[in-house]
Computed example of a mutant assay.
Amino acid sequence: MGAMGRNHARVLNSLEGVDLVAVADPMASASAVPSGVQLVQEVEQLIALGIDYAVVACPTIFHEPIGLALAEAGVHALIEKPLANTAEASNRLAEAFESRGLVAGVGHIERFNPAIASLRERLEAGELGEILQVVTRRQGPFPGRIADVGVVKDLATHDIDLTGFVTGQTYRTISAQTISRSGREHEDMIAAVAQLSGGTIANHSVNWLSPFKERTTVVTGDRGCFVADTLTADLTFFANGVVDTEWEALSNFRGVSEGDMIRYAIRKREPLLVEHENFRDAVSGKSHDIVDMRMGATTVAVSESMLRSAATGETIVLDGAPAS
């Protein structure tokens, strides 16, 4: 029942077709739990209630033991991102649920943001032509509740996942730099440059050192630029213009000029609600669009490559992986 746990409980408690039975949290007070919902201390007590599925929203270091307990008991699970604190742990979780034929997802909520969903549809339709570059900026004040991972695994995993999601490409090479200024064990700022499998360049700037919050994804292609703001769920298109110039100094420059700008009208549903609707449908055997654990494990592996690059000063070449 932390920051995300409270929101998960709120959505599940009103989700059609789902009964929120209980919450397992050794530190929560009964007043924090929705009315009529049982509060227990441990995941084993939750399993004993005969639940169909569980949502794991706790410190990342506990994702693996809790997830493995749920898999062993035959309980479907939606685990918050990052899937686990290491790539090895992530793969163990994926194998545990797959081997038992269970539905298992990762809470990469940005995929369900209306701006990102619309962006992907437009890129798939070829509205931008060839995708040349993806630039993400994700920054804000330091969250005191995060202590077990740094900004790369907590925040940059959002950008890693959504970049693969909107482009349909995988990461091939990564070069990164990190710094730590907050006095913690882990990094709180990263700048990374990557090349994707289709030749697209990706740039990620992520930190916990900014006094203002920003969540922006800019995709540049042959025909212009899409700008997605996931804080406001706005998607804007800046078209390349074609304007002749008589200015001699620029007459030989082969580039683009400013064209039309379009801000799209998008139906703005709460991403967390859409995420839960999809997971509910997956458990019910209906059509769905969840982020499975293999995708989540790939994202963790990419984040570790970023950290390895920052530690060694080398450009990391990644092994091939299936596109998101």
Rank of each mutant, 00 (worst) to 15 (best):
V56A: 01
V37H: 06
V75Q: 07
M189S: 14
G105E: 10
A84S: 13
V55I: 15
Q169S: 13
I61C: 03
A32L: 12
S197G: 14
Q169G: 02
D25E: 03
A28G: 08
F112H: 15
N278G: 02
Q38Y: 00
Q38L: 12
S257F: 11
S257R: 14
A301C: 09
A104S: 14
S99C: 08
N252H: 06
M189W: 15
A191H: 07
V23W: 06
F226R: 09
L15F: 01
E246Q: 14
V23Q: 00
D25T: 01
P34K: 07
V227D: 04
E80D: 15
D319T: 11
V242N: 13
V193K: 12
T170A: 15
G285V: 13
L128S: 04
T60C: 10
E130M: 13
E277W: 02
L132G: 11
L250R: 08
V103Y: 04
V243R: 14
R263E: 11
F238D: 05
M306V: 00
R294P: 03
A311P: 01
A30N: 05
D281R: 15
N13P: 07
T86Q: 08
V317F: 08
C58F: 00
I146K: 08
M295W: 06
S251Y: 01
T157L: 04
H8R: 06
D234H: 07
P59R: 05
A311W: 02
D148Y: 05
R267M: 11
R145F: 15
D154N: 14
D188L: 08
S303T: 00
D159Y: 10
V55T: 14
E214R: 11
G296V: 02
N278F: 05
S210G: 04
S303M: 00
V55G: 06
L49F: 00
G221C: 04
G36P: 03
Y264Q: 07
A301P: 04
N91H: 15
G168A: 12
N278Y: 05
R172W: 00
A89V: 00
S257T: 15
